[in-house]
Every structure is written in C-alpha cells, then in structure tokens.
Design a protein around this nucleic acid. Structure first.
Lengths: 335, 335
DNA sequence: AATCTTTTTGCAAACGATTGCAAAAGTTGT
DNA sequence: ACAACTTTTGCAATCGTTTGCAAAAAGATT
C-alpha cells in the first residue's frame, strides 16, 4: 500500500505539499500540483480515509437509521423503504459520502454518541418517525445535522421531508366519493405520524362531501396485509350491506382487505370500492388492480440528502412535503 | 469529548495501561483494570473508532454490496432483499460491526481498493451475483474476506450462501405435476445464476415425471410483475388450450402472469395452476393465494455473517445452500 | 540481604494524513 | 544591489489510539 509519504518522495516534495497538491490547493504551484497528481494517478494512490478522518474530524459518512415500529417490528411499507434507500445510497455516493445503515429495533445506542461524537458519521438520515419519537426530539436540541423522513407537524423543530399524506389521502377518498361511495372505512394506525395525516385527509374528504364521520368505520390496523385481512373480517363484515368503500393507509393493508372481501363474496369494486397508499409493485398486478396514491420516492431521497448536506454546511434547511399522485385503477372503478 | 488520555489521568495511570485496562487485558492488574473501567463508565467514555482503526488497521465495518442487474437495474426480488438486509444488519450489530451499504449499479469502484485497501471495511458481503460476475471471480484471487449470496456452482472458488434453488423449484414443479398439470411453462431469466438453478429444477421435475421439455414453454422474463404480465400475454396466450401450469422464477413474475390470465378469462387454478418463488408478503393475500417456495432468509443472513467472520479469523468457510419450503396455496389447488 | 522471577507499568513509536506557521525562493521596484 | 513583497515550500505538531520493549515493582528463593 502506498502512502502519502511515498508519493511525496516520488514527486520530490514534502508530504505537506503533496497533501495540498492532491486536494488541488491553489497555494501550491500549478506545475507541482499536476506533477503530484499525475504520480498519484499513476501509482493508483488513494488517501487513507481513516487517517484523514482522524485528522480532520470528519468521516464523509452518513448514517441512515431505519426505525421499526416497536410493536409490529415492522417498518413502514417495506417496498417503499427499499426504493428510497436505493435513491439515498446513489445520491450519497454521488456526493462522495459512504452510507452506514442501521435498522434500529428500539432499544438502541444513543445516536449522537454512537454516530456523531464517535465520528462514525457526519450526519443522520432517519426514516420513519413512527409515533412521536423521544429520541428525535432530543436530537433536535443538539447540534447534530439530521433529517427525518416522515410527517411534518407544520412547526417541527427539525427538518422533515415527506409526502403530502393528508392531501393525498383526501384525493383518494374524494375519488371514492366521486365514484358514489358514501360509507367509507379507514384502515390504518393513526398513532403513527404519517398515517395520522392520511387519516386526517380521509376526514377532510368526508367533511367536504358532507358525509358523516363514523367511529365504527375507523379501524386501527398494522402495516401488514395480514392485519388488513383480519380486521376486515372481524370488523368490517358486520357493516357490510351499508359499507361501500375502503381507504387503506397502505397498499398492503388494502390487499389484505380485498382478499377478505373476495373470499366473502363481495364484488370489488361494484359493491365496494377500495383505495390504498404507496403504489407498491404488486398494486398494479393484483385483481382488481388497486387504486392508490404514489409517493415521489426519487425526489424524496434526493431532498433528504441535499437538505442534510445543507445543514452540514451550516445552513438552515426547511421541511418539505412532496406532492403525491393518485393512480386510479380498477379497484375503485364503479360505473 | 473525553479521550483516553483524560481517563488515564483520572485513573492516575498511563495511557498504555488505560488502553489495556479498557480492553480487559489480563496483563494489567485486576484492581487497576476495574478502576479504569469504572471511571470510563462513569464518564461515558468510548474509544474513538477512527483512531483505533488507524492504529489497528481494522475498521470493524463490513460492506454490503447489492448488485443490480445491468439491464433491468433491478435487484433480485426486492422484498426478499430487504428482509435479508435486516437480518444481516442485526447480526453484524450484534457482533460489534457496522454495516456500510452500497448499491452497485455496475460501473463502479474497485471493491478491493475502495473498501479493503482503504480500510473502509474488513470484509464484503455481496448480494445477488446475477450473471457470472467478473469482479467476484477476481476478488477470489485476492486475500479479501468475502461471501456471496447466490447460487453455488458446486465448485466455487469463493464462499457462497444461498437457497437450494434447484430442489426447491423441482418440488414446486413436481407439486404442479401432482396436481395434474402436464404442460408447464417456466418464466424467468436463466442467465441469472440463481434463476438458472430454478430452471434446472423445473427440468428435473419434468424429466422425473417423464414429461417432455418444450422450448416454447420457456420464457425469458425479467424480475418484474410487469414483465410477467407482458410475456404471458405475448407468448403464453397462444399456447393456452394446452398449457395448464406455470412455474415462475419469482412471485412478482407469477403475480403478473396471473393478472394477465385472469384478464383473459382463464381460471386459476382450475384451468391453469401457478406457482412462484420467494413468498413475498403479498403472495398469501392475492387471489388466488399463490403457491410458492419460501427461502430461509433468517438463517441465510446469519450464515453470511458467520461465514464472513470465520474467514476474517483466517479459517476456511464452506459454501452452503439452505433448504427451502414449498407453500401450497390456492393457485395450485386443482382438486 | 542479595539474586532471580514474575507481575505491572509506562515510554515512545507507530498508524497516515492535514495544517499553522515560519522559512526559502522568486518578483518587483527603486 | 538591496529592500519589500508575493508565491511556494517544508517543519513539526496534531488527531486518539495501540503495542513492543524495557524499566520498575513486587514476590520468591537461597
């Protein structure tokens, strides 16, 4: 392995000069710079990031923390997660950062101590705030640069990037209403921040249409197809003659619900229309294809990264909610 | 931030002693050791991993590289991926390692140089070997500790952990045959290592049952539901009166195919039975529920990690293929 | 009490970069 | 030819640990 000293020797300059030359510091003579760079290239030299890290106190690494729900041990919508993770990874690589991934199952190290103080990472991206999280709140009182994917309360003390869950949900439910639904159930766990927004959007739509809210129609449901299936059987079947629409807080839930309905002989969408949220890969290919709301994962990932880097540069970064898109498919096509 | 020097001072010992004490080196007096440890605890001291790294030339970090298919830019079976990633993350954390994640879109840095030589990581886990990969082959000629998730050729020059794709596929197809199917199509891209094994298993089953192989029944299909849908429409519909079974190399493909069939008025499983591979979350909740083969993600992840650590300890680690489980559901239930 | 072991400790040299500061070299002006 | 700058270089300290080796302390042996 070559070290900076070797390169310096080869170029017949001091280590200091070599170091500066490599980083293209204009204080060193242009010719010298080029010579050093050329030699470094030729010998395939790369600075040792550990040594650099130690000296500069920066790691050029970002930690991405995926929060799992304490109870269900499940992250929000798996497929969505992998997508945004991919985007973040690409984006970070592109900016010259490495990505440390941690899937936090609650009981966990103290992020600030472990990542920032220990210089394992220069900043944090936290995905899925779930229910109001103590630790995130705490972080915001420190100087740690971090961004969160989730729901904005409108006056957060930290930077949030997320989807316009509320208006997205409203659009979906309004669409159901436009299709003639008048008794629409909500499936999802509104104790979860993002889902709460979707729940509010659901209410917005009902209210705008002058439809009554009905507590019987609001089912707390985990993120899984399984729970969507079960809750539908247990709590929606009794309401069936009247119930004519379901808005599920995630596609997984929606698919579970549809399964239950189909087994029970309910015609979707004729007797009952269904809409979900996420547009997971399967949604277009189940029967009937699922009407859903698609999040802008690509811009989401990009924004998370750029806002984090902004913070690391000492700038302020505002929260931002991205527009979503309603995709109407067969599951809501009544007449 | 506390440094080792501070702790040493507080404990009234030298840094050397403090360092040894913290790592519980028996060469230092037990009392001294405890005293130092106690003080470190009290002041919440943690050794600086960067400094330690620089000195010891180890990073206590493992790089996980996810390979994407050059063409489709898609990784094998997304849901599966996220699962195994989670297991690996947990396992590594548990062993005191951090996890660097990289999603490699082909044109990429040289893994050895970037991760190992630069001391960013002590070992590599590569997920999804795809088509025969030049870079993996190359790695095996170096001293780099690494393991691969994928298909074993039986005489690999490196450590592979994977599923018994071949026998799993055979089981699935044999099941279809047992259900009375005699004309079974294969959907998947057998240029991909793992899929090739599934393809061979498909052939095994046909041969054992004395059924003829038929090139018309073998469709090269991407990993997506979309492609399953398209290929089915384009290439299977013409064969329909006779065709009575489909074995898809992934659940996503299977679901796409089922969608096409249903739209075309084909009854699944009565007219045509379907089986997939992966048991993605949706498979149990689509209609009809999909018969599929479930991989042992948990043990897969654990094995990857333990075999890698084994290698890092200088031991040899053998390749290993894990048993899979056939889950029979409605999509193949022909009476 | 002197010598020989065995435990414990600490000194000092790494590990491989970056950077403040001063010195050396090169320019310009007079 | 000398002073006064400006540009370019290199010395040496620093980042926070770990570890080989020798010295100091403690214990055992005669």
């Amino acid at each position: 392995m070559m070290t900076l000293a070797d390169i310096a020797a080869l170029a017949e300059v001091s280590e200091s000069t070599a170091s500066r030359a490599l980083r293209d510091n204009p204080v060193v003579n242009k010719e010298t710079r080029l010579k050093v760079q050329q030699i470094a290239q030729q010998y395939q030299f790369n600075v040792n990031p550990t040594a650099r890290s130690l000296r500069t106190q920066k790691s050029y690494t970002i930690a991405v923390i995926i929060l799992f729900d304490a109870k269900s041990q499940q992250a929000i919508s798996d497929p969505f997660l992998l997508e945004i993770l991919g985007v973040i990874a690409d984006e970070l690589t592109h900016k010259g950062y490495d990505m440390l991934l941690s899937t936090s199952k609650t009981k966990d190290k103290d992020w600030k101590t472990y990542y920032i103080d220990a210089k394992r990472a220069d900043g944090l991206i936290i995905i899925g705030q779930g229910e109001h999280d103590q630790r995130i709140e705490q972080l915001s009182h420190s100087k740690v640069p971090f961004v969160v994917w989730g729901a904005s309360s409108g006056h957060d003390s930290f930077t949030v990037v997320g989807s316009q869950n509320r208006s997205g949900a409203e659009a979906a439910v309004s669409h159901l209403i436009a299709q003639g639904c008048t008794h629409i159930a909500f499936l999802g766990d509104y104790r979860h921040n993002e889902i709460e927004q979707r729940y509010l959007g659901y209410q917005d739509a009902l209210q705008k249409a002058g439809l009554a809210l009905n507590a019987d129609y609001e089912l707390i449901t985990d993120f899984t197809a399984q729970d969507g299936y079960l809750k539908t059987q247990q709590q929606l079947f009794p309401l069936l003659p009247e119930l004519d629409g379901i808005f599920a807080a995630s596609d997984a839930i929606a698919l579970g619900a549809m399964k239950a309905l189909q087994e029970h002989g309910v015609q979707v969408p004729q007797q009952l229309a269904v809409a979900g949220f996420d547009d997971i890969a399967m949604s277009a290919y189940c029967s009937p294809a699922l009407t859903t709301v698609k999040q802008d994962t690509i811009n989401g990932g990009k924004l998370l990264v750029s806002k984090l880097l902004q913070q690391m540069d000492g700038e302020q970064a505002e929260s931002e909610l991205l527009p979503v898109r309603l995709l109407t498919r067969q599951s809501s096509a009544r007449g």
